Deep mutational scan, measured.
Amino acid sequence: EMEYEEITLERGNSGLGFSIAGGTDNPHIGDDPSIFITKIIPGGAAAQDGRLRVNDSILFVNEVDVREVTHSAAVEALKEAGSIVRLYVMRRKP
């Protein structure tokens, strides 16, 4: 069973403070093209906020749908998102 969360982060000097993997051209798990959080960087915006978790998958960055995009398109969406970034994420319920 999945749960969904909308997380708004303010981009810090060091960016959003997380790493991603995945994409249609580089699936992270099997042939699932989802964009997954692979690392939360200590002291970064995501770590300070505390809600984003490793293995969360990002569905939307602001209004941009990143469910079926290449890795570089997801990176671009995050880069272009401005200083306030709304992430709509999905994760397995614990």
Rank of each mutant, 00 (worst) to 15 (best):
G17N: 07
S57T: 08
H71A: 08
Q48E: 06
G17W: 01
I35Y: 02
F36C: 07
N55H: 05
G15S: 13
L59T: 14
I58Q: 00
P33Q: 13
K39I: 05
D32V: 13
H71Y: 06
D32P: 10
M90H: 15
F18N: 00
N62D: 14
E63Q: 10
G44H: 05
I41C: 11
Y88R: 11
R86D: 06
E68Y: 04
H28C: 04
V89H: 00
A81C: 07
V69C: 07
S34I: 15
V85H: 03
A74H: 01
H28P: 14
G43N: 10
P27S: 09
L16K: 03
Y88D: 04
T8H: 15
L9V: 10
E80A: 12
D49T: 14
V85T: 06
D65S: 13
S34T: 08
V54R: 08
L87R: 00
D49I: 04
V66A: 11
G12P: 14
R92V: 07
L87Y: 01
E10S: 09
T8C: 11
N26P: 05
T38M: 10
S34R: 06
P94I: 03
G82C: 08
Y4N: 07
E3C: 09
D56V: 01
T70D: 04
F60A: 12
R92Q: 04
G82E: 08
A45N: 12
R11G: 12
G82D: 06
I37R: 00
P42H: 10
A81L: 08
I40K: 01
M2A: 01
S72I: 13
R53C: 02
F60Y: 13
E80Y: 07
L59A: 14
P27I: 15
V85R: 01
G30Q: 13
T8Q: 02
Y88A: 03
E63I: 09
D56Q: 14
Q48W: 04
G30K: 11
I20Q: 05
A46L: 04
E80W: 04
Y4C: 03
E10T: 11
H71G: 13
T24H: 04
T8I: 12
Y4I: 01
A46P: 03
R11C: 03
F36Y: 07
V64N: 05
A45G: 11
S14E: 05
K79E: 01
P94T: 10
E68D: 07
E6Q: 04
T24Y: 14
D31A: 06
T70H: 07
D49P: 04
A81I: 14
G43L: 07
T8F: 05
P94E: 15
M90K: 09
G44R: 09
N55A: 14
G50S: 13
N62K: 05
V61M: 10
R11K: 11
Y4V: 01
I41E: 08
G17P: 04
L9Q: 02
R86V: 07
E10Q: 04
F36P: 01
E6F: 02
P42V: 12
P27A: 06
T70K: 15
E80M: 10
F18R: 00
Q48R: 09
R67Y: 03
E63V: 09
A74N: 00
L16Q: 04
E1V: 02
A73I: 10
N13A: 13
A73L: 09
E6R: 04
L9Y: 12
L52F: 03
E63R: 07
P94K: 01
F60N: 15
R51T: 14
A47M: 07
G12D: 04
Y88I: 01
V89Q: 01
G12E: 07
A21D: 12
E5P: 10
A74V: 12
V54W: 06
V75N: 15
V66K: 01
E68A: 12
H28Y: 04
V75R: 09
V69D: 13
I40F: 03
L9G: 00
K79D: 01
V89L: 14
E76N: 07
D65M: 14
T38A: 05
P42C: 14
H28G: 11
Y4W: 03
G15Q: 14
S72W: 09
P94W: 03
G50T: 11
V64F: 07
A81N: 12
S72F: 03
T24M: 09
A77P: 02
H28L: 05
N26V: 07
I37C: 04
I41P: 15
P27W: 03
I58F: 02
G17E: 05
V69T: 05
R86A: 08
E3Q: 03
L87A: 01
E76D: 03
K93V: 03
T24W: 11
